[in-house]
Design a protein around this nucleic acid. Structure first.
Length: 415
RNA sequence: GGAGGGAUGGCUGAGUGGCUAAAAGCGCACGAUUCGAAAUCGUGUUUCCGGUAUUGCUGGAACGGGGGUUCGAAUCCCUCUCCCUCCGCCA
């Protein structure tokens, strides 16, 4: 969320960023409204000044035991005029701040027009047979039942069963332990439902509203990512310099309507309305954030490394960059059955964008300033599970559980 | 769901109608002292908006959110949110 004066002084620059991120915002209209706002603000302030001055006089006269009634009509008139003008001013002010809330975050200078593959891990292993998809394996092994899920909830929901459900749970616990014990995260178990303010702070609102599930009675949002509750833990706080960095990780179920997506992109576990994800959020000093971004990337990557899954890291191009992000790496895992690279993690630096919306600050050398926030999926399970069962399937149609996961599953293969 | 108590600056906490942007303490910043530090002393220390000008002056607004009473509200009334206590219900 930009400061109004900053917007006023950087219209061209912000217009350019908005366009690059695919938003056509009417900055001319903004400039017009803002001028109107300033004029009206001046008028209202002047009327208030007069009113305060006269009101004070009434007080003085009354204290001296004198009559002040001759001043009242003028005060009534001023009051009325202020009320009217202020109502208009408030409307304009709201329009202006609404407009500003739609301006996306700035873009880091390293961002290119095309995706850049930063690194590619182990090569994809050759199968001596045609690997099956997770949908086929899920059915034959009895561990995934999409038909059943759609009867209970609707299309594009998943139901995990037996060893499938256990494997899902094992993955979550494995990842949480990894980040907590090896990467120094504080584990959090937050609410899955969040309020509108929280959604606004992290930048999901206003832009992504159509993609959210909202509860009817209370107007609460089903969180689309643990980034929302985690980042909001520190909303409206002023932190001391030495409390940074703060690293929170959490598992939550994530809920997304995925409005507008359909077809084979959504088959099986590829894109579902409810999924599980372990999320990492970092709160850092502004000067540290790009260094932290690289660390976060390696922390997220380590999940795939430990499970020996083939993956690559892509630096997102301009037109894929999200509303709130200044720079993002995607981690994609290869899945042999569907023969595709699947996004399992987004690693982003939001710089001070979310911190400004959420008012997360530090006091440093007597001055308060906004910190930087970053997050990474560490990682999302549906596609991780796809990669796992598709890449580790045997010719007999069984799935071998990788070594580090066995203590969590309690079994070595799914058959 | 019912009854009561509460929400004030980075923190603790005073303040029941104008003299309060807000006491006091803590913290923090700068300076003095010191070889240096601690202690001590001094000064400063909320944010946003407008005007003017530039590191200042000036006007307005904000004491959980919204509304009301009043010439005038941190202070009185209503309402919402959150926290605490008690009762009820419940996994």
């Amino acid at each position: 969320m930009y400061n109004i004066r900053y917007v006023e002084e950087h219209i061209e620059k912000l217009k350019e960023i908005s366009e690059k991120k695919g938003l056509s915002l009417d900055f001319q209209e903004f400039a017009r409204l803002n001028e109107e706002r300033k004029t009206l603000k001046g008028e209202v302030d002047e009327l208030r000044r007069q009113k305060n001055e006269k009101g004070q006089k009434v007080g003085e006269l009354k204290r001296e035991g004198k009559d002040a009634s001759h001043l009242i009509p003028e005060l009534e008139r001023l009051k009325e005029e202020i009320t009217t003008k202020e109502k208009t001013l408030k409307q304009i002010q709201k329009k202006v701040t609404d407009f500003i809330s739609w301006i996306p975050n700035r873009i880091h200078h390293s961002i290119k027009d095309e995706p850049v593959i930063i690194k590619e891990s182990t090569k994809i292993k050759d199968f001596p047979f045609k690997p099956l998809t997770h949908i086929e394996l899920g059915k034959s092994l009895g561990i995934l039942d999409f038909e059943c899920a759609s009867h209970i909830a609707g299309s594009n929901f998943a139901l995990y069963k037996g060893k499938g459900a256990t494997l899902e749970r094992a993955l979550i616990n494995f990842m949480l332990d990894l980040h907590m014990k090896r990467h120094g995260y504080t584990e959090i178990f937050p609410p899955f439902l969040v309020n509108e303010e929280a959604m606004f702070s992290t930048g999901q609102l206003p832009k992504m509203k159509d993609d959210m599930y909202i509860t009817e009675r209370d107007g609460l949002f089903l969180n689309p990512t643990a980034e929302v509750p985690l980042t909001n833990i520190l909303a409206n706080k002023i932190l001391s310099m030495n409390s940074l960095p703060i690293k929170y990780c959490a598992y939550t179920a994530c809920f997304r309507r995925e409005a507008g997506s359909y077809g084979k992109e959504t088959k099986g576990l590829l894109r579902i309305h409810q999924f599980n994800k372990v999320e990492l959020v970092n709160f850092v000093h502004p000067e540290e954030s790009y260094k932290t971004l690289e660390i976060l990337l390696t922390e997220a990557e380590s999940v795939l490394k430990l499970l020996s899954l083939p993956y690559r890291v892509v630096q997102l191009p301009l037109n894929d960059l999200s509303f709130a992000s200044a720079k993002t790496y995607d981690i994609e895992v290869y899945a042999a059955g569907v023969d595709r690279w699947l996004e399992v993690s987004s690693v982003s630096n939001f710089e001070d964008f979310q911190a400004k919306r959420a008012q997360i600050r530090i006091k440093s050398e007597g001055e308060t300033k906004h910190i930087h926030t970053l997050n990474a999926s560490g990682v999302a399970t549906p596609r991780l599970l796809i990669a796992l069962i598709e890449n580790l399937q045997t010719e007999k149609g069984e799935v071998e559980i990788p070594e580090p996961l066995i203590p969590y599953t309690g079994f070595e293969k799914i058959d």
